[in-house]
């Protein structure tokens, strides 16, 4: 077999990945269409109906300008408001898929790949910008570059080929750091940069488990992402179809309390894992059918917050 640049990478057979892509696409087609129509309303700004600004001619008088207008002996005559034309928005969306072993040991891996197919198809049908796919675990890799088209089966199958759920750790701190770095680079290489209003969005598809002692570092990185106008949504794959009791919602973590110098005090603490989960925007998906509505709802909330 041929050796690849990344030493421990396992590539699946292309034909197999193509079959998998086609099967997932057929299965998730109605969901993709539903997500497309929901996202169209959210991601593409509607014709602005708000009147604003100050012009010599316009639709309606700006009351605040009337007194200065009279006081200036009718010289400051920009007293009219007009309908604002929205700027064209474009997006760079990075789909980050967990390639760690825990995904393969549960059925979360399959759910994540189905979600990847469903979401990436919905986004490419929307034609709102560039799509990238990133794999993560012990390290990160680009399974699909932003500047390559995603419209064909080929591109999708090539991305699927890279996921085999063999990575020994799940380094989410590294993932967030790499996401910021790749978005910074992608912003510079964006074809329409300068003119368009560019938004960057990362969707993480994972079973959600990251060591609790990394949570503070991850929070700090997420603040950094926010300052760079990068939005990060964590989609927790929680396939509970045949084992409801194992849901991440029930998962608790045990800590043996230590004093300031690191000695055990004899006390024990038990908290729900999700209580200290560092991602502000996250969704828990038990069934693929839940994803379009939940994702659209979350993005709607976020856009309402940033536009407020």
């Amino acid at each position: 077999s041929t050796h690849l640049s990344e030493p421990d990478e396992v590539m699946k057979d292309f034909g197999e990945s193509m079959q998998q892509w086609t099967a997932f696409q057929t299965k998730t087609n109605p969901l993709s269409l539903s997500l497309t129509s929901q996202l169209r309303l959210i991601l593409t700004p509607s014709q602005s109906t708000k009147l604003s600004g100050s012009y010599r001619t316009g639709k309606r008088l700006n009351i605040k300008r009337i007194i200065p207008y009279i006081a200036s002996s009718y010289k400051r005559d920009k007293i009219w408001m007009r309908r604002a034309i929205p700027t064209k928005r474009s997006y760079q969306i990075l789909l980050c898929v967990d390639d760690s072993k825990s995904m393969g040991e549960s059925s979360s891996g399959n759910l994540a790949l189905e979600s990847l197919v469903m979401v990436s198809r919905a986004l490419s049908m929307l034609e709102v910008g560039q799509i990238g796919v990133l794999g993560f675990g012990a390290n990160t890799f680009m399974a699909h570059e932003f500047n390559e088209p995603f419209a064909s089966h080929d591109a999708g199958a090539k991305a699927l080929q890279r996921f085999s759920f063999q990575q020994d750790t799940t380094d989410i701190r590294l993932l967030v750091r790499e996401t910021i770095a790749r978005f910074r680079q992608a912003r510079l290489q964006n074809p329409g940069h300068g003119g368009d209003d560019l938004w960057q969005l990362a969707l993480i598809l994972s079973d959600g488990l990251t060591p609790s002692n990394e949570h503070e570092d991850i929070r700090r990185l997420l603040r950094e992402a926010m300052e760079d106008r990068i939005m990060v949504v964590f989609i927790v794959m929680d396939d509970t179809a045949n084992k409801k009791k194992d849901s991440v919602l029930n998962l608790r973590k045990v800590q043996f309390v230590k004093d300031a110098i690191g000695n055990l005090t004899g006390d024990m603490k038990m908290d729900y894992y999700l209580d200290s989960f560092p991602f502000q925007y996250y969704l828990i998906v038990h069934n693929l059918e839940d994803l379009p509505g939940a994702l659209a709802g979350l993005l709607r909330t976020w856009f309402a917050e940033v536009n407020a």
Partner: peptide, 17 residues
């Protein structure tokens, strides 16, 4: 009780813990 069977524990935990 249902839903209480899974935990995250420190890796250095032994029988007594």
């Amino acid at each position: 009780p249902e839903g209480k069977s899974q935990l995250l524990v420190p890796g250095d935990i032994k029988r007594y813990g």
